[in-house]
Design a protein around this nucleic acid. Structure first.
Length: 856
DNA sequence: ACTAGCCACTTTTTT
DNA sequence: AGTGGCTAGT
């Protein structure tokens, strides 16, 4: 009898646990319930892997191994069985459940702080934590979730001294690295033509990713160049160590060294992290693999999630082999594939599959979905990048009319530089947007200066940062003095600041001694301020003590902007201090700044169009996705011309880009594009050719259609000579032209040059032709397609600006209705200030903004 | 020591 | 094309 009761309890317990996973499909469920031993989850794009990760952690914390175990902690009573049955049947926990049944539901439940989850970005870590918190309450916050880099910093902060680094070591960014490298080049008298510093830096980085020490590198140089790199690597490392600094790669490298050389430290972390999860495993490096394997070798509970088709960071040292060879690295590993996609329409998914199947060396999987076909993918052939930007804006406008929001739209591209034309267009048209990536806020000069001041207070050994600000504002401490100082410091093996303190003792510094002691005075003042004040007050005070504020106040041009930026920095210090409470520290803040990336601050709630690279878009999803620059030489990039491996990486990147889209995907290629200061004509990307034509509609820029009709006789523009592989574009152009011509509705439009002298036009506005084309396009679009662009551009521009008067009611495609407040003519255009009903006052450019006068 | 002007280089992607 | 770093001149 008792045995039957126990059996029933076990069955009910299993059912109950199952019930907590109701939203998972069978494969996802299996992944969430497989808690012991090595596990590889091959998760295709949009397969719900984040949900699985969360459910898996929740299952660990709430139930441990109860799902598969026959153990029961406590005595099974009829009451317990009844309560549990009731919970299973009703889906609700009855009174008494918590006290009587809950303790019997778990077998070896895992304490949340014994779980380590590694994510790719800080943002992903934050999201994981907050979703865990809503599932598990406080326990969710106790789970360790962070990036490799932040996890390593935390480990190193405890024990950096064992490696000969101060606990408050500085983290060097790329810019800092470059400066050190410059010194190294000077000291070793390396010719930077023979070996570009960038190349040396990246090769050194790759060595660190492979756990090759400077000694290893020096021991077996394959040729002179490698020998030289080894020497550079060695000196570079010594310099960083002397400065008490680590670069990004060092954070991983030194952590691995620390754990390898200190069994007690390793054991501590093996005990601490009993369950390890690694997301985006396809983008881990060799060093990261070793780190994971060392940590996991205690309990062997290692779960990695990834998609070999989404490996896009090889250039940064990621080795796709980690995921391909997981089963060899961790014997007995189970593998679970998640291939059902919940994100995209089947058209989009099929297109992604079309592209990626051209890669070799894949684990191989095919995503499928139960979502409908959806609309076809659109391929827009633009005349140039302005036309491309214009088309994006128009399409977004049309989507908004259908009820979509700005934030549902993402514009993706290969390189940050491609954001420019779109940005310009959006800014003028008043379309709200945000760029993710590009130059970071923290990369601004004034910010880096203030941070450098903060850094030398935290780490007096940081010579590099000292050099940055010792004469900023000017204190009559010049290059010669600094070089001598560096020499003395190097000779004595002490920091430059230490040399400054005794400047008078060194004859070489006699001339600058007074200025130097003035700086030391300032430095000591800073330290006192730091010791006695809250962090944000300290930074505010710092600006006064150092004279930095006075310097900016004196600068009429850029001073105010820069002070505003610094104001932002101070408020982020305040936010940090509020968040961390008594835990807040200067080093902690600097560390957060060093490791933060732009994507981390991306806020998906704010209703703006978002622009970013496809790399940055990894892990995100949007209803409407635009991928710009689908051209050979742009995407795939020119850099991978000679390497199949790199071409495959580009293709994976394309796969990532396509699979970001939920509802609609817009691809565009441009016939000509200004790139690196040159106008190029690229043929459409091979990735376009790889997509089944049945999945895609093609649309050609109106400007190109007109051109096509003009050159039809000579048949030059789309001859097979100029577009060898673009027969599809050629056909459809002719097709659409043919229709227009056949219907007699359209005649070749006059060129802009005919109605306005070409010389005058180009003098007034270099890209006048293209811009005029856009302006007209907008007009046509807003007149519901009834108007054909026909007027001369100069007139169109002038008349459009003049069409608005204060008091007019206008309709803006993005902001809706509004009243014109003010009209200000400017060179070639008109600023129209509008009070909108919903979004307040905005300024727009008449020629660019999607506005139309409304008769009342 | 500082400034102005010139040249060269940039850009593939980022923790 | 733009920026940043470097040189030469004051």
């Amino acid at each position: 009898m008792a045995q039957e009761m126990i059996q029933e309890f076990l069955q009910l317990r299993k059912a109950y646990i199952d019930q907590t996973l109701t939203r998972l499909n069978p494969m996802q469920r299996k992944a969430a319930l497989t808690t012991q031993g090595p596990l590889l989850i091959l998760a295709g794009a949009g397969s719900g892997k984040t949900t699985v990760l969360i459910q898996r952690i929740a299952n660990l914390v709430l139930f441990g191994q109860a799902y598969t175990s026959d153990k029961i902690y406590g005595t099974v009573t009829q009451q317990a069985v009844d309560l549990l049955r009731q919970a299973v049947q009703t889906g609700k926990e009855p009174a008494g459940f918590e006290e009587i049944v809950a303790p019997m539901l778990s077998v070896g439940a895992v304490r949340p702080w014994n779980v380590l989850a590694i994510t790719f970005t800080n943002k992903a870590a934050g999201e994981l934590k907050s979703r865990l918190e809503s599932r598990l309450g406080q326990a969710g916050q106790d789970v360790n979730a962070s990036t490799f880099h932040s996890a390593c910093v935390r480990i190193l902060r405890r024990d950096a001294e064992r490696l000969g680094f101060p606990k408050s070591f500085t983290i060097y960014d790329t810019d800092d690295q470059k400066r050190v490298m410059k010194d190294v080049y000077k000291e070793l008298m390396v010719d930077d033509k023979f070996l570009p510093p960038r190349s040396a830096m990246s090769q050194i980085g790759r060595m660190k990713d492979q756990l090759i020490s400077p000694k290893d590198a020096m021991a077996s140089p394959a040729d002179t160049k490698e020998g030289l790199i080894a020497k550079i690597y060695d000196l570079y490392s010594r310099k960083l160590k002397a400065a008490g600094a680590m670069d990004f790669d060092d954070l991983i490298y030194h952590t691995v060294c620390l754990l390898q050389d200190n069994p007690d430290v390793l054991e501590y972390y093996q005990q601490k992290f009993r369950y390890i999860l690694v997301d985006e495993y396809q983008d881990t490096s060799i060093a990261q693999f070793h780190l994971v394997r060392m940590l996991a070798s205690g309990h062997n509970n290692i779960c990695v999630v990834g998609d070999d088709d989404q490996s896009i960071y090889r250039f940064r040292g990621a080795t796709i082999e980690n995921i391909l060879n997981f089963e060899q690295h961790f014997p007995g590993a189970q593998v679970i594939r998640l291939e059902q996609n919940y994100r995209s329409t089947s058209h989009i998914l099929d297109a992604a599959n079309c592209v990626i199947k051209n890669n070799s060396g894949r684990k191989g999987k095919t995503l499928w979905t139960e979502n409908g076909q959806g609309e076809k993918i659109q391929h827009y052939v633009a005349e140039n990048e302005q036309d491309e930007a214009y088309h994006v804006a128009m399409t977004i406008g049309a989507n908004l009319k259908q009820g979509a929001h700005l934030k549902d739209h993402a514009i993706l591209y290969r390189m940050n530089a491609q954001s420019g034309p779109v940005e310009t267009y959006f800014a003028r048209a008043g379309i709200p947007y945000k760029i993710v990536g590009g130059q970071r806020f923290y990369d601004r000069k004034e910010i880096k200066d203030v941070l450098a001041y903060m850094a030398i207070v935290a780490n007096p050994r940081d010579d590099l940062r000292l050099r940055r600000i010792i004469n900023e504002p000017g204190r009559k401490i010049g290059g010669t003095t600094l070089d001598r100082m560096a020499e003395i410091a190097g000779g004595l093996g002490i920091s430059m600041l230490e040399v400054c303190r005794h400047a008078a003792d060194y004859p070489a510094l006699a001339r600058g001694a007074k200025a130097i002691s003035g700086f030391v005075e300032i430095y000591d003042q800073l330290c006192r301020a730091h010791d006695t004040m809250p962090l944000d007050t300290f930074v505010t005070e710092l600006l006064d003590i150092t004279g930095y504020k006075a310097m900016l106040n004196a600068d009429k041009e850029k001073g105010q902007d820069r002070l505003e930026n610094i104001g932002q920095l101070i408020s982020s210090v305040r936010t940090y201090a509020d968040q961390k409470g008594p835990e807040a520290s200067l080093a902690g803040f600097l560390e957060e700044v060093a490791l933060i990336s732009d994507i981390d601050s991306y806020d998906e709630e704010s209703d703006v169009v978002v622009l970013m690279t496809m790399h940055a878009a990894k892990g995100l999803e949007f209803d409407y996705v635009f991928i710009l620059g689908m051209e050979e030489g742009v995407f795939p990039s020119d850099m991978c011309r000679f390497s199949d491996e790199e071409l495959e990486e580009e293709r994976r990147l394309c796969y990532v880009g396509i699979t970001r889209a939920k509802k609609r995907l817009y691809l565009s290629s441009s016939q000509s594009r200004m790139i690196f200061g040159r106008t190029q004509r690229n043929r459409p990307s091979r990735f376009l050719d790889e997509i089944d034509p049945g999945l895609m509609d093609e649309e050609m820029s109106p400007a190109l259609q007109r051109q096509a009709s003009r050159s039809w006789g000579s048949n030059r523009l789309f001859s097979d000579d100029s577009y060898p592989t673009n027969s599809r574009a050629g056909r459809s152009t002719l097709g659409s032209y043919g229709q227009g011509f056949g219907g007699g509705a359209s005649r070749p439009q006059p060129t802009s040059g005919r109605t306005r002298p070409a010389a005058q036009q180009s003098a007034a506005r270099p890209a006048g032709g293209a811009q005029a084309g856009r302006t007209m396009g907008f007009g046509g679009g807003f007149a519901a397609g009834s108007q054909r662009p026909a007027a001369a551009p100069a007139q169109a521009a002038a008349s459009k600006g003049a069409a608005f008067q204060p008091g007019d009611t206008v309709d803006h495609k993005v902001f809706g209705r509004g009243k014109v407040l003010k009209v200000t003519p400017v060179a070639g255009d008109t600023i129209v200030e509008i009070q909108f009903d919903k979004v307040g006052v905005k300024k727009t450019m008449a020629n660019y903004a999607p506005i139309q006068k409304v008769e009342e």
